[in-house]
């Protein structure tokens, strides 16, 4: 669990872009949505520094609006730059995951070959 959380950290920005692309959302809702895909984090707060960075890079626009919780809530949506970045992330992820899958499969074949010998 802790180690998968570590791996998620590296691709968190891409995952957040994907979550936000589904429509306007706020911090805690993003964590819940990631959770429904089995993507959980040890430190849920780690999304906020990433969101700050994404805002600075111009991938998201934000607005503060009243929430049922009392304090104002910060809502996010993707900018055209954010959409382009998401497409870029998808392409990079496909490349990486295909590579890792292939490597792991080959590794499996290799082990089986050794066992047969």
């Amino acid at each position: 669990m802790a180690s998968s959380s570590q791996m998620l950290k590296g691709v968190l920005e891409g995952c957040l872009l994907a979550v936000i692309s589904k429509g306007e959302t706020y911090g805690y809702e993003m964590i819940e949505r990631l959770g429904t895909f089995g993507l959980t984090m040890v430190s849920e707060g780690s999304i906020y520094p990433v969101l700050l960075r994404m805002q600075k890079e111009g991938f998201v626009s934000t607005a503060m609006r009243p929430s049922p919780n009392g304090p104002k809530r910060k809502y996010y949506w993707l900018t055209p730059e954010g959409r382009a970045e998401l497409e870029g992330f998808k392409a990079r992820w496909k490349e990486l995951s295909t590579g890792v899958d292939l490597l792991l499969e080959r590794e499996g074949e290799h082990h089986e070959a050794i066992k047969e010998k």
Binding site: Y26, G27, Y28, I31, E44, G45, Y48, L51, L52, T62, M64, S67, N69, G70, P71, K72, R73, K74
Partner: peptide, 16 residues
Amino acid sequence: EIVEVTGELEDHLAEP
């Protein structure tokens, strides 16, 4: 930015 990020943390802590 301080107002926004602390507001976000408050909102988060109010939920879980």
